[in-house]
Amino acid sequence: MTAKFCATLGAAVLATGLAAGAGALWAAGEETHIERQPWTFSGTFGKFDEAQLQRGFKVYSEVCQRCHSIKRLYFRNLVQPGGPAFSEAAIKSLAGNNYQVDDVPDEQGKINKRPAVLADSFPPPYPNEQAARYAQNGALPPDLSLIARARGIDAGTPFYRVPDAMLRDIVSGYQEAGADYIYAYLLGYADPPAGMKMAEFMNYNKAFPGHQTAMPNPFLAGDGLVKYDDGTPATVDNYARDVIAFLSWAADPMLQERKRLGLLVIFYLIITAVLLGLAKRRIWREVH
């Protein structure tokens, strides 16, 4: 009886995982194999590395910000625990000195700019989509607030390997497909293979579906583009890893709290399940 239950539940979970996993991961590199990267925040015990997030923010503000907005991020988020955890004073002056946001209309109805405060969100580099496209040869640089969650990988797993792959992902808590894809994308710039015709303004990228992307290589200048103050080697590889960690945090700022609470809940439920199982057996002992 118990075996049948386990078998049925197991089959059902497998079926769920099979169907869900196969459908959920998405075609971001059909023939390209996207490697999985080690991230400090992956898995059951994953946490963000504060120093890495701070470096990632530096990379974002010096390299990405001129084209990509991050409008769902507020300056106050940079101060809250679970993230880069800058000091409040540092972000207040960063916001006030470097960012201007729209003020409320003045007496004449004109909208002036004022220095940003903690409660403001990051102002976008372009006032609207049309201005962005005009400046970028018709392409729209996507907002980066959720980019780490809005990308996935279609690993092209053959159907008989799908249950095994899904089980491994579910057990390990794999949620970093977006981060892995963006890493492959940022470091995937290369010369197009011989004979490939590139469209106007497009750049060849190994990871991007179709291999032609409107975004030029942001790290074209190579190592040393961004100066790191904490001794971390200023290499393109580190820039990519750090900015992706930062963007993963921006997309999911509650990750650390979520996993912390998750461990407590799972631990509690395991104990509860054991106790309830023993209680059930005691109650049923007379009946069996």
Binding site: G21, A24, W26, L146, R149, G152, D169, G173, Q175, K259
Partner: peptide, 13 residues
């Protein structure tokens, strides 16, 4: 707690 987006789809972000 550990796989909140697993059963969903990245495009919905």
């Amino acid at each position: 707690f550990f796989l909140p987006d697993y059963l969903g789809h990245p495009d919905n972000y």
